[in-house]
């Protein structure tokens, strides 16, 4: 029973092709991402990892020249159907960016902004509760509980990134997308976030883009290797890193190119 639950497919892409103007960035991507798992996407720079995860919350919609074909299904529903509301989709699919980007407002407002615009916390007490819970789950509460009115930008880089994670989980999403969330952080802050990811996967489905093989091994259950806009190989993290079937994957994870 547990096994079946664990392997339920949350996100599925069918023949996804993405173009920036004339240039094609993704070619026929077919990928399945399981619920309550961490899926790591690895691959050399420019291979289309960011493009792919930005398709999952339709963040590419804001780029004028970006055009896509194919489908992405979340819970078996195509999110690119004309009837789908992007705002509701993004409430369900949160995102954490490579560079921490807190709003230049107070820590409290950073976390309460999402619930407020979605009408989640009705009263001030509700909002306080959501802010506290989100910050606790992002393992930031103890560091900021006495300074909630200070600007979010006054925190350290690692704290800012955890604040962004708190902001993402404040609206209770089902999926969290992370695009190289630790690339701007030192090892200690990285370790904290990795610990956090492990905890968060109990509630959320997580897709993480990373350039660190070690990080992929530490946090993920499933790994996809991208190269030149194509998925070369997908499998359990153990399989990909212990005995990859494709030579390119082998070369990449052993650091021979990329």
């Amino acid at each position: 029973m547990d096994l079946i639950m664990d392997n339920k497919i949350k996100i599925k892409s069918n023949n996804l092709n993405v173009f920036y103007g004339q240039k094609q960035a993704l070619f026929d991507i077919n990928l399945e991402i399981n619920q309550n798992e961490v899926t790591a996407l690895i691959g050399p720079s420019g291979c289309g990892k960011s493009t792919f995860i930005r398709c999952i919350n339709r963040m590419n919609d804001v780029i004028d020249i970006c055009r896509m074909e194919g489908q992405i299904q979340i819970d078996d529903k195509n999110i690119y159907d004309p009837g789908v509301d992007v705002v509701q989709l993004r409430e369900k699919v949160g995102m954490v960016f490579q560079k921490p980007n807190p709003f230049p407002k107070s820590i409290y407002e950073n976390v309460s902004y999402g619930p407020k615009i979605h009408g989640i916390g009705e009263s001030k007490d509700d909002l306080d509760q959501i802010v506290e819970n989100s910050l606790k789950r992002a393992a930031l509460w103890n560091e900021v509980k006495d300074r909630l009115e200070e600007p979010g930008t006054s925190l350290s880089g690692g704290q800012q990134q955890r604040l962004c994670i708190a902001r993402a989980i404040s609206v209770n999403p089902e999926i969290i997308l992370m695009d190289e969330p630790c690339s701007a952080l030192d090892p200690i802050a990285t370790a904290k976030i990795e610990e956090l990811i492990d905890e968060l996967k109990k509630t959320f489905t997580i897709v993480i883009v990373t350039h660190s093989m070690a990080q992929a091994v530490r946090v993920s259950q499933k790994t996809g290797f991208f190269h030149m806009g194509k998925v070369i190989e997908v499998g359990t993290t153990e399989q990909i890193f212990k005995n990859p079937t494709n030579n390119m994957t082998q070369d990449y994870i052993t650091g021979r190119f990329g």
Binding site: F97, G114, I117
Partner: peptide
Amino acid sequence: PPSIREGALAVGASK
């Protein structure tokens, strides 16, 4: 910076 716009859009703010 565009990162501010993306941050807001990513928590589900409309344009």
